[in-house]
Design a protein around this nucleic acid. Structure first.
Lengths: 142, 142
DNA sequence: TTAGGATATTTGCATGTACAAGCAAGTGAG
DNA sequence: CTCACTTGCTTGTACATGCAAATATCCTAA
């Protein structure tokens, strides 16, 4: 159809389409762990930076603070992180259980990388990720 | 932070971040019309292809059929499209009102294009859109 | 002609995310 | 010291989207 050309020349469209595709892929890779990719990434950040604040997590993950709250809620419920509230700030600590899970999370991450690199090529995937990263940064700062 | 580098090398992350940024931009551009970008695009497709089916719309828009149903519901309620059901298939027709709105939709689309081209550069935005389109296609066919 | 599968659409439910408002704690000027 | 302002987080609510199941129609082969 003719209008396809128009749509496919619109960044709004292509970006959202790609996001849905890669989200699906990501969910598949992390499903064996019972985690969403975002949850898994939050845990990794907590493992590498124990005591990190909610706000810093939001910054790293490019998510709204409230979204981080929900993610963290779920992980606290699963016993994967601990939330220590001091004053107005909340610090997130990984639990023992999270440490045990770490290798599987890393593996799932690798498998996600594998999955899209198989389709896009190692270099192609990398380049695309970088261009998108730069563009997102510019648009975010707008 | 160190983990930032890891995250920013992950297509899942960057793609979703970009999608959120551009979605926000898109919503701003179409807000004056009281439409979401997806709704606006659906109307454009209906204007260019009166009688188009629900399924074809889903294909063009890269959305799940159920999503198109909801979008269409909203537009029917607003009196912008008409749904004619024949047998098992539903054809979507633009109303008079949609025709009148068309120029404003086109203008909003242009302004969206302007907005991100101003940030990414005309060429940069175009190239990025094309790479993303190709990647999304490959990943979708996976 | 009709039973069974294929196809198109819609509905029920779940998920991820955001915004706005609320709350709790820190901070600075008088 | 205290009152207004700011900051960081959480809760209420809303929305776009998807999957799976339900529904309705169409088609084909016996």
């Amino acid at each position: 159809m003719d209008s396809d050309r128009l749509l496919n020349n619109c960044l709004y469209f292509t970006a959202n389409t790609l996001a849905r595709a890669i989200t699906k892929l990501g969910e598949e890779c992390f499903k064996p762990l019972g985690l969403s990719p975002s949850q898994a990434f939050l845990i990794m950040l907590a493992l590498e930076n124990p005591g990190i604040s909610s706000g810093e997590l939001a910054g790293c993950l490019n998510l709204a603070p409230s979204t981080v709250t929900r993610l963290a809620d779920a992980l606290v419920a699963r016993g994967l992180i601990e939330r220590r509230t001091q004053g107005k700030s909340a610090s997130i600590h990984p639990t023992e259980q999270a440490t045990e899970l770490a290798p599987r999370i890393a593996a799932a991450w690798k498998s996600l990388h594998r999955a899209y690199s198989d389709v896009l090529g190692e270099q192609g995937g990398h380049d695309l990720t970088q261009s998108i990263h730069k563009a997102a940064k510019k648009l975010g700062e707008r």
